[in-house]
Write a protein that binds this DNA or RNA. Structure first.
Length: 423
RNA sequence: GGAGAGGUGUCCGAGUGGUUUAAGGAGCACGCUUGGAAAGCGUGUGUAGGGGCAACCUUACCGGGGGUUCGAAUCCCCCCCUCUCCGCCA
């Protein structure tokens, strides 16, 4: 959510920055509704003042035994006028909010302009793609043949876009979770949290998932509970409506959670395999940062996520998303993309974003600065990493001619020393 | 799920319709006092909006939302959360 006062004072700038995102946002209407609302609030504040004064006077008069009926009917009239003004201001406020809540964050000035992913810019690249002197298989064929992946039975249990891991496959999933948590906690200084896997609508509003993206979520019928689409939601909301002490920033959290996404509108996309699932595991990094430091923190967070891929020896690149490809709440996003031999290209395995004050304003997350003034923190997060995609990247990148898969060194301590996955 | 008790400022805590401008205390800040400190004394100390160059003025806020009333922290209704007991349950 943008700051109303900022929008009002920087109309051209806001319009210009928003235009790079594509889509039409009713800035003019926002400003006119805001001005109208202000007038009404001014008027009703004044009426309230009159009412307070008169009511007090009635109290005094009564005490001295005087008649107050004339005064009372006057105040009654004032109250009626206030009531009707309140109705108007309520409807204006609803209008204002529905506009304001639908406006995405302003892209940071360092974000390249562009309408879709073609305008994303590669920032750096690490490692090299593996060379195979045989035709590499994809993770579905590999995993199924190894007996560690069973998509058919998962479909029987739940449906399409769900998976069932078996034996060493399940073990590797669990090992990846532990490995990533350990690295981020012991090497990068994050505090581990294990949050609820369900969140209410207030929390989802705070992170920007609601009201605009309700169809992406699974809602528990007849309740205000939603399955979380990412740990970002519960972890960012840890400090919902709180004022933090400035010295405690930055605060860094890492959380493992499963993630649930309806994937409405992605029917034709990535239908094969583990790339796009209704349920997947993820280790997420979340930071609450001082506004002056948040871009440094974004660089550091991205590096923290990259280090996981380096330790696993997986070839990847980092791209900065262009204005048109960024998520609703983000001011700047780096995607980390891992090399997938079966697709002969890079695929997203992590998305690291600085939301600046956009989420903090929605969720009411502030801090007390050195001058004693309160301001909104900046929130950041990034996958560190998506477990399912890491799992399949290992299968594809470490496969051998005989269909076996070498387990990366870094992971072996978490897998009872197992070195190779084979039938 | 049932019964009961609660939710007031940074914290504790008083307050069942009108000098509440939220008592009192603790904490914190500043000052006085002191060789220094503690104690003591004094003053100040919430959030969000609007107005003013400023001192200041003003509106809202006592878990959230409605209502009654000239006037609501206080009365009524709905909801949320916490605690205790019971039931159920891993």
């Amino acid at each position: 959510m943008l700051d109303r006062n900022f929008v009002r004072a920087n109309l051209d700038f806001v319009r210009k920055r928003l235009s790079t995102r594509g889509g039409d946002y009713s800035i003019e209407e926002l400003v006119s509704v805001d001005a109208e609302l202000k007038k009404i609030v001014l008027r009703s504040d004044d009426l309230r003042r009159q009412r307070n004064e008169a009511s007090e006077e009635i109290g005094r008069l009564r005490k001295s035994g005087q008649d107050t009926s004339v005064r009372q009917s006057q105040v009654k009239e004032i109250s009626n006028e206030i009531k009707s003004l309140e109705e108007t201001s309520r409807s204006l406020e609803e209008k204002l909010n529905s506009i304001l809540h639908g406006i995405p964050n302003l892209p940071h000035e360092t974000v390249p302009a562009g309408s879709d992913e073609a305008a994303n810019a590669e920032v750096r690249r690490w490692g090299t793609a593996p060379h195979f002197d045989f035709a590499p298989l994809d993770h579905v064929d590999l995993g199924t043949a190894l007996g560690i992946l069973d998509l058919d039975r998962a479909a029987k249990i739940a449906g399409t876009r769900f998976s069932l891991l078996r034996a060493a496959g399940a073990l590797m999933e669990r090992a990846l979770i532990n490995f990533m948590l350990e690295v981020h906690v012991t090497q990068h200084g994050y505090t581990e949290v294990l949050p609820p896997f369900v969140a209410n609508s207030t929390s989802l509003f705070g992170t920007g998932n609601l009201p605009k993206f309700a169809t992406d979520l699974f809602r528990l019928e007849g309740t205000d509970y939603y399955l979380i689409p990412t740990a970002e939601v519960p972890v960012t909301n840890i400090y919902q409506n709180e004022i933090l002490e400035g010295e405690t920033l930055p605060q860094k959290f890492v959380a493992y959670t499963p993630c649930f996404r309806s994937e409405a509108g992605s029917y034709g996309k990535d239908t094969r395999g583990l790339i796009r699932q209704h349920q997947f595991n993820k280790v997420e990094l979340v930071k609450f940062a001082h506004p002056d430091k948040s871009y440094e923190e974004l660089e550091a967070l991205t590096r923290d996520a990259e280090e996981i891929l380096q330790r696993l020896g997986l070839h990847y690149r980092v791209v900065v998303l262009c204005t048109g490809d960024m998520g609703f709440s983000s001011a700047k996003t780096y995607d980390i993309e891992v090399w997938l031999p079966s697709q002969n290209r890079f695929r997203e395995i992590s998305s690291c974003s600085n939301f600046e004050a956009f989420q903090a304003r929605r969720a009411g997350i502030r801090f007390r600065g050195a001058d004693g003034k309160r301001q909104f923190v900046h929130t950041l997060n990034g996958s560190g990493l998506a477990i399912g995609r890491t799992w399949l990247a290992i299968l594809e990148n470490y496969q051998q001619r005989d269909g076996s898969v070498v387990i990366p060194q870094a992971l072996r301590p978490y897998m009872r020393g197992l070195e190779v996955l084979r039938k």
